[in-house]
Amino acid sequence: MASINPANHGLRLAVRYAVLSIIAVVFLFPLVFMIMSSFKPDLQLLQDTGSLRAFLPVGDLSFENYREAFERAPVWTFVKNSIIVTGLTVALSLFFCSLAAFSFAFLNWHGRDTVLAVILATLIVPFETIAIPLLLLVSKLPWLGMDGIEWGWLNTYRVQIIPWVADGLTIFLFVQYFKDLPHELVEAARVEGASWWQIYSRVVMPLAGPVLATAAILKFLVMYNQYLWPLIVVQEESYRPVMVGLQYFFQLNTAWGEVMAYLTLITVPVLIFYLALQRAFIASIASTGVKG
């Protein structure tokens, strides 16, 4: 092999960093614009929009927009609701979808492939097409609560969580990952006397870190960005999630500064979640790339 020319190597590195920086800037611009605007009064915000000033902390900066945002809407209630709904859905989804995928990948049962095909087919059905039938269904479902059986799930957390727990994409991600795991690991565990549950919990899931992270992030984004479904099933403010809460800032007069302040606030949990899982997420993308 030819030796690497240091000057050449340096140039290549510089080009690489330049390209990456441009890409980073493109992705960061909206975030920077949002954060900067959240500190500016409406008039200045609109004036700055046409120039680079929109991305700079210049002019009359204050926390006024934040104060007014909290006055206009119960921001913390919305954030709390979104975290509860998203957190529980992600956790339940990872559990049930991985369990279903385990069955598709490792167990032999009659009609398995057909059922999997049907589940995958649901990927092409847009949610909007089933929203109304689903609404009718959940409005009549029973629930065993503290006060006995109640009918109808509207205006609850569960109506925002349970319909979203199982989905074709998450199951598909797990099935693909499980199928790539060496089958002998499962067979060895069977010979050693492990039950299917023990194989799932002690052998397969401890090796599923990358796919868990991927599925968690994808599910988190879907759930945190939920708008249509909570809009139609939740009328009570105390159960509303953040995206529905955004509507509060477009009633009567639109205060853009407050919108930006609100958006900045509700972006924070997303960033925290992504930063926590990004290493595993990248590892997962990298490993699926290698496997092809």
Binding site: P182, A188, V203, L207
Partner: peptide, 8 residues
């Protein structure tokens, strides 16, 4: 097993 099948 041929591939050892030890748990990584």
């Amino acid at each position: 097993f041929q591939t050892y099948a030890i748990f990584p």
